[in-house]
Design a protein around this nucleic acid. Structure first.
Lengths: 200, 200
DNA sequence: CACTCCTTATGACCGCTGTCATAGTAGCGG
DNA sequence: CCGCTACTATGACAGCGGTCATAAGGAGTG
């Protein structure tokens, strides 16, 4: 969470992602981003000549890469990797945050999609790319665990979809119930896909 | 889609839901809602003295009841009801819309959660209530199909979560891929819960 | 007609937001 | 010291959005 030790430009992208995931894209102002990043207001114009659109897109891009990196890290940390174990970790990241810091934040990519998918083409594409990145990381992990190639990507999509949806429900309800439910219910299905043929 | 044949008040709530699901809460203006509903601007103040907050909350509430009603209707229309069949219908409603009308709209409850959960308590509660309504309808349907009581609600949560998440991904990607994937992958798990004991 | 209640009409206000223009400072190679 | 580039500082502006104040239609009812 430490913001410092990075250039002002990167700090602003990071702050944008944080504010977007809390308040949504529309409610996040540029001046606010600069203040949050403790960066000078004048730098906005300098580093992001494309304006808010560029800043938002970079924040979404950053979030997608971050999510993919997290997946790789979860995978590496698992003593004995299973699909259910990976999914449990992905969910746990959110339950931990919500229990420790409250239900203030959601997923920045989801926020960008809701607020901008219909109006700003480049942002919609950034969100799409972020989901693709993330899904790719999960699918590769599944493949590495023995899930048949043709099921890895659909299962990764299912994992991310249910996680995103559960995040929404958890924020609305201020309760991690939905998150724990999807983790528990989906686990067996995921593990059952290991080593099988392509059969559903 | 026909807006007419209802009082101006109800039309405005309906229009608000439509605009919110397309553009998000913050980007939806009150004047715009009135115009879309072909209702006089002055009526906003009259019917919604609580301002935008009240209008948004009622739109979310409406969306929750609508979703629950749809579930009941899907259930009634199924010749031979199965959990996977119900879920397929729920997903199909979205693929049909996206293929027929484009990827312009998402779920209004999701939009309200993303844009307001952190800032407006009453709206967060409205979203929570909407999810509860919806989940309840699905859980009752599952119970009626023979799913054990203690798994009906978690499975309903999983269905709605993955549907919401897949909606997000579909909008971002402008492709129904995610929706069809979750429907296909989740189906067998859902049907396997019929008649079983509580065992996961 | 008078009175009353539900509904509409309008215009103004104020705060905020993204963006631009313009000018300033800092460091550095020459 | 010059000149150049990278960055920062500010103020203005035009637009929009939610809200309020105020007043007017308009249909019943007595």
């Amino acid at each position: 969470m430490a913001v410092s030790e990075r250039g002002p430009r990167e700090r602003m992208v990071f702050s944008a992602a944080q504010l977007i995931r809390r308040d949504g894209v529309a409610a996040t102002g540029m001046r606010e981003v600069a203040a949050h990043a403790r960066a000078p207001r004048g730098s906005l114009q300098h580093y992001f000549p494309g304006g808010k659109e560029q800043l938002v897109n970079e924040a979404v891009d950053w979030a997608g890469r971050y999510a993919a990196r997290r997946v790789d890290r979860f995978l590496a940390a698992l003593a004995e990797p299973t699909p259910a174990g990976l999914f449990a970790q992905m969910v746990r990241q959110w339950t931990d945050e919500y229990e420790a810091a409250g239900f203030g934040g959601g997923c920045p990519v989801a926020a960008a999609t809701v607020d901008r998918a219909g109006s700003v083409a480049s942002t919609r594409e950034a969100a799409s790319a972020a989901f693709t990145h993330w899904t790719g990381a999960v699918a590769r992990a599944l493949s590495g665990m023995g899930v048949p190639e043709e099921r890895a990507e659909p299962l990764a999509t299912l994992m991310i979809s249910s996680l995103e949806g559960a995040i929404l429900m958890a924020r609305a309800e201020r309760d991690v119930r939905a998150l724990t439910a999807v983790s528990r219910e989906l686990g067996p299905l995921l593990d059952a896909a290991v080593g099988g043929t392509g059969a559903r």
